[in-house]
């Protein structure tokens, strides 16, 4: 317990440092360092400092919201599917979100309220996402729960299929429509879509709250479906509800910072390794912190090196290697 507290304190400090670095780092590292006695620059700075700080804070908020959602829902997803490798994004959920956006614009055109109003668009896409998620669970996940390799394959095929069909539609689309689509779908951590942050943040708080309320149930569900039912958990109801939360969370994080495949995998498994527990409460908290640290510090590093690469690539590099290790270990090949 004592050791765990130390881990939490260190992680907490790192989170704070990461966030502060992201918000204030530009002051120290711009090509022409700030000289407080420079009257010209000072005037410009005074005018813009609030704007810059607000922008950076909003961006960091978007990253924190996404990271926390990715980490917690990945953990819940692993409990539901009874394994520790799959995450919603590895199954291709984020690719599906992008495809949904493309379909909306293709069918309704960019002048439709379903597209140009960011809130209506977000809600429509999220609703579709929920339906597809529930459908996918029934169709694939539930039956093949123990076949991780198969599920990973399904995830790969599905995300490729989703991306290719989106690509296809984009190719035959009106160029003007395509232009407006790009803004929505080419979201990445360097080009965040902050339009929906004010609907995403309260939604995130709601989801986190809802997940925390179910924490004891998730502990039991980790024993497996029949055991959980035997102990009186209303498994189907809890599962459907959790899947809806997962779908919303994936929509939020993909809408805000674009797809990041391996963040959930890294965060959840790192938390598991560090805490060596099956209890969801500490895992929820620590994996969220780790996700924030990875994402924000990664982004700071990328920014400092002049955007030579993107943090998504960095995380995929680490996460991909880690996943291969996990797959080999779990299957004892």
């Amino acid at each position: 317990m004592k050791k765990n507290r130390k881990i939490f304190i260190i992680a907490g400090i790192l989170v704070v440092i990461a966030i502060l670095l992201y918000i204030f780092l530009w002051m120290l590292t711009t090509k022409q360092p700030l000289k407080l006695n420079d009257p010209v620059r000072n005037a410009i700075l005074q005018k813009n400092i609030t704007r810059i700080l607000v922008r950076n804070s909003t961006q960091v908020l978007a990253m924190v919201v996404s990271a926390v959602l990715i980490a917690t829902t990945s953990l819940v997803f692993q409990t539901l599917t009874n394994n520790r490798i799959l995450t919603p994004s590895l199954i291709g959920f984020d690719a599906i979100f992008v495809t949904i956006q493309t379909f909306i614009i293709f069918i309704f055109s960019s002048t439709s309220i379903l597209f140009y109003n960011p809130y209506v668009n977000f809600i429509t896409a999220t609703l579709l996402m929920i339906i597809i998620t529930l459908f996918m669970y029934r169709l694939i996940l539930r039956k093949n729960r123990n076949n991780i390799i198969f599920l990973l394959l399904v995830g790969m095929v599905l995300s490729t299929l989703a991306r290719s069909s989106a690509n296809f539609l984009q190719t035959i689309m009106d160029p003007a429509e395509f232009d407006s689509l790009i803004i929505r779908t080419q979201v990445s951590i360097t080009q965040m879509n902050l339009n929906v942050i004010w609907i995403a943040t309260p939604l995130m708080i709601f989801i986190i709250f809802a997940l925390f309320r179910e924490i004891k149930n998730y502990d039991v569900m980790a024993l497996g479906e029949s055991q959980a039912v035997g102990l009186g958990v209303n498994y189907n109801q809890k599962m459907n509800l959790s899947l809806i939360y997962i779908a919303i969370a994936m929509s939020i994080s993909t809408a805000l910072i674009g797809p990041i495949s391996f963040l959930g995998l890294i965060a959840v498994n790192a938390a598991r390794e560090l805490l060596k527990t099956y209890k969801h409460l500490p895992l929820f908290i620590l994996s969220s912190m780790i996700a924030v640290i990875f994402l924000v510090i990664g982004q700071v590093i990328v920014a400092e090196t002049g955007y030579l690469t993107s943090v998504t690539v960095l995380i995929s590099l680490i996460g991909g290697a880690y996943m291969i290790y996990l797959v080999l270990k779990e299957n004892k090949i």
């Binding site: 924490i215 004891k216 149930n217 502990d219 039991v220 024993l223 055991q227 102990l231 009186g232 958990v233």
Partner: peptide, 9 residues
């Protein structure tokens, strides 16, 4: 975990 039905954890 056997006590779960009685105490909800």
């Amino acid at each position: 975990f056997g006590r779960f039905p009685h105490c909800k954890g």
